[in-house]
Simulated scan of single mutants.
Amino acid sequence: MKQQDVLHADETSYQVIESDKTKTYYWQFCSGNSEKRQIVLYHHAETRGHEVPLGFLDGFKGYLHCDGWGAYHLLPEITLVACAAHIRRKFYEAIGNKKQPNQSSPAYIGYRYWQKMFQLERKWQALTPEERLTARQAELKPVMDAFWQWLENANILPHSKLGRAGEYAAKQRQAMMEIFNDGRLEFSNNKAECMIKELVMGRKNWLFSTSLQGATSNGVILSIMKTAELNNLDVRKYLNYLFREIPNLKVVDSSTLKDYLPWSETVQLHCKQQ
């Protein structure tokens, strides 16, 4: 994963009975849509501090899609890419009456800017990265530049919901503008949001882990299963294949296990979805 150019990241809270802390966290990292090999990893840790992604992504020097959580801003040699969905959501939350919004209100105006940008992005989903970059520079950038200019001149109360939306957007400006440098980058971090929902939905059923080791193991199992799914494998076939083959290996190390990763030709031959 660290050899790839574009990654997404997100994190969510989790309860472990054995832990002294009220909350622990799953950190989720996944490959960008442009990457040939799709990987998702659920890494359990007792903290939400920057030391977790700092250690986990040690050696990674590419683009990282993320939200505004401060831990990501302390990572060296990594280019952060902001999430337009988070910016839009904060303006939407500031509108107030969602059924009959005041269309002249600053909250609604800010929200409409981002709605317009999302509409443009949807038109370019099937384009190559090069084509998408050209389209963004020609059509999206003028709209985004107009939003930043509007935000600078808007009369917004600093501690209101709208004020917090404007402050969040301003802090994300530099990271948001990265999408005009590389067409492989996504307009939002929705991929990571969707990937972590797998864990959140499961958590509602099993509620917690008793031990820290159990939480770690849970993350490993989910990582294997979800990565298999992203690489078009039948997850049940893949797990059966691993359980059948790996115990019979004479040597189990990083070299031999490469043949059992989801994208290997042998695994694709035996476990591909029908």
Rank of each mutant, 00 (worst) to 15 (best):
Leu127Gln: 06
Ser104Asn: 14
Glu131Asp: 11
Pro106Gly: 08
Pro106Val: 06
Leu127Tyr: 05
Leu140Cys: 11
Pro106Gln: 04
Lys141Ala: 14
Asp145Lys: 09
Asp145Glu: 14
Gln119Tyr: 01
Ala107Gly: 11
Phe147Tyr: 08
Arg112Ser: 05
Tyr108Asn: 08
Arg136His: 11
Trp148Leu: 00
Pro142Ser: 11
Gln103Asp: 05
Gln115Gly: 06
Ala135Met: 09
Tyr108Pro: 02
Glu131Asn: 10
Glu139Met: 10
Ala107Gln: 08
Pro129Asn: 12
Trp124Lys: 00
Gln149Val: 02
Pro101Val: 04
Glu139Gln: 14
Lys123Val: 02
Pro101Trp: 07
Ala126His: 14
Arg112Trp: 00
Gly110Ser: 10
Gln119His: 01
Phe147Leu: 01
Leu140Thr: 07
Tyr113Ser: 03
Gln115Tyr: 06
Thr134Asp: 15
Phe147Trp: 01
Ser105Gln: 09
Gln137Cys: 15
Leu120Trp: 02
Pro142Met: 11
Phe147Met: 03
Ala146Val: 01
Phe118Trp: 09
Tyr108Val: 01
Phe118Pro: 08
Met117Ala: 09
Pro142Tyr: 09
Leu120Met: 08
Tyr113Asp: 03
Val143Tyr: 02
Leu127Ala: 06
Gln119Gly: 02
Lys141Met: 13
Pro106Trp: 05
Gln119Thr: 00
Arg122Trp: 04
Arg122Asp: 13
Arg122Cys: 08
Met117Lys: 04
Arg112His: 02
Pro142Leu: 11
Trp150Gly: 00
Thr134Cys: 13
Met117Ile: 08
Gln149Trp: 01
Lys141Phe: 10
Ile109Arg: 04
Tyr111Lys: 11
Lys99Ser: 15
Gln119Asp: 07
Glu139Gly: 03
Thr134Ile: 14
Glu131Ser: 09
Gln103Trp: 02
Arg112Thr: 05
Gln149Leu: 02
Lys116Ile: 00
Ala107Lys: 12
Arg136Pro: 12
Ala135Phe: 05
Met144Thr: 05
Glu130Thr: 15
Leu127Thr: 01
Ala107Tyr: 12
Gln103Cys: 06
Asn102Trp: 09
Tyr111Glu: 12
Ser105Tyr: 13
Pro106Tyr: 09
Asp145Met: 06
Leu140Gly: 06
Tyr111Leu: 13
Leu120Ile: 03
Val143Asn: 06
Tyr113Phe: 14
Leu127Asp: 04
Glu139Val: 03
Met144Pro: 03
Val143Met: 04
Lys99Arg: 12
Trp150Cys: 00
Ala107Asp: 10
Ala138Gly: 08
Tyr113Ile: 01
Met117Gly: 03
Glu121Phe: 11
Trp150Pro: 01
Ala107Thr: 07
Gln103Ser: 03
Tyr108Arg: 04
Pro101Gly: 04
Trp148Thr: 01
Phe147Ala: 06
Trp114His: 13
Trp124Met: 02
Val143Glu: 12
Glu130Val: 15
Ala138Cys: 11
